[in-house]
Design a protein around this nucleic acid. Structure first.
Lengths: 244, 244
DNA sequence: CGCATGGTTGATATATGTCAAACGTGGTGG
DNA sequence: CCACCACGTTTGACATATATCAACCATGCG
């Protein structure tokens, strides 16, 4: 499609990828695993700031993130836009394109990244023959729907500081499950992008960060975050019931 | 599961259901259509106010709405809740359960309704043999994801009146595609439920309705809505670009 | 017919947005 | 290599959209 950079066809094997347990069904025999190797023939590198696909692009492939960090965003005709998620290694991009054979959001790399290209026709074909793959793929899509319900809850019913606390906890949990520190990480996105995702202005994001720091919950220096009081953040997210 | 009412097993055929074009793949031969009849063995009636499933229920089936009207909502541990959508005839409920074999939201009938019960194991099995069904099901899930992106855009970036206008236009469009009037309909949900869905308080919903009426865009009398100026509503949704 | 539920409207409070100024920081080119 | 510049961030003062609280009204069900 509109690949900024595309590696020459690399022989790529899911069966010995160390992200396997993040993007593929687990508990398969070695033999079963090899049938998954048919899924991915190529990888693609995307430089920071470049787009993997944009709204309107015709849909052909899904992308599994091998390394790096992305945001997805939708735009309304009148120029507003909304970040719909931040994606990291092991997560799948492009599902939005299946419904109409065209993408409905932009996927933009927030750092130099690499993705596995999964031609959708092949995914359909292999999952037709290989039931665990079909089952797993359905689960991935279902979980994405559930995740979005969570975002709707956040956007529809939480206040600014609650949203930011929930956001930090979510990041922390995802870093943890990838073997990184739960309490110390570098944000890949700007305050404006966080604000767009959380439905608030960048100044409000900045003030909430400062407030958390004043309260001893985190320490923040630009993009570097250290969580000092995980339980305290959790209390902020969950305190609405107490407050009302 | 926790069916409030369940009809005795009724022989039910997708192949001569008049909602076919809404929930199933189109362009199939009569013979192909009959293979879909395996999907649905039973229907279930749900009375207004009763729940079809609730968060935590173990997941076994999807439900295609044959008639009636539902809302789905998620709840946070601290008692907040968020309506995640309103569903009408031809739409599918329960997809949220696939990912973890348990439901993550409640589905509540807003009027006496009837659904077709689609055992998920059967759906998987039939779609394993019958490619157009698999393809169609993927499209349905993908479109749900895209719909939710739209809701995120609405919640994250629109102001109260823009949200309500977008909501009315969305309802109007869905009624139209079911053969009902685009400009005159009865709301099945309360102001509070609209507000929960749109991320605002019921008073704000009510005030926005009144404002639209004062401006000649709609006439509203309790749950009865008549849209007088469709273009005017569209202008409200899309005017952010102009305003900034 | 009367009550319960949902809806409307008003007065006021408050969270967040807006506008503006100053400051850090990292990358680039002289 | 340093200095400068563009970009992102922080913070303050003020504006405003929406929430909150409260009273009253409509309606439809039992």
């Amino acid at each position: 499609m509109n690949a900024p950079v595309s590696l020459p066809h690399l022989r790529v094997a899911c069966s010995n990828c160390n992200l396997r347990e993040l993007c593929l069904p687990v508990g398969l025999s070695h033999e079963q695993l090899e049938s998954l190797d048919e899924l991915v023939y190529t990888r693609k590198r995307i430089k920071r700031g470049d787009t993997l696909f944009r709204s309107g692009d015709s849909f052909a492939s899904l992308y599994a993130i091998r390394s790096g960090f992305f945001k997805t965003r939708v735009a309304s005709p009148d120029g507003r836009d909304q970040v719909t998620g931040f994606q990291m290694a092991g997560e799948l991009l492009g599902i939005d394109g299946i419904g109409t054979d065209a993408h409905h959001c932009d996927a933009i790399a927030l750092e130099d990244s690499e993705v596995c290209v999964i031609p959708y026709a092949r995914l359909e074909e292999v999952s037709q023959r290989f039931e665990p793959l079909q089952r797993h793929f359905h689960k991935v899509m279902s979980r994405e729907i559930v995740r979005e319900h969570g975002v709707m809850l956040l956007l529809g019913s939480m206040r600014a500081e609650e949203r930011l606390a929930a956001f930090l906890l979510n990041l922390s949990q995802r870093f943890t499950s990838r073997g990184y520190s739960a309490s110390e990480f570098v944000l890949r996105m700007t305050r404006e992008e966080i604000g767009s995702f959380l439905g608030m202005k960048l100044e409000t994001v900045s003030r909430a960060f400062s407030k958390f720091q004043d309260d001893g919950l985190i320490s923040v220096q630009q993009k570097h975050i250290r969580i000092a009081d995980l339980a305290g953040l959790r209390k902020i997210v969950g305190q609405a019931g107490a407050a009302c």
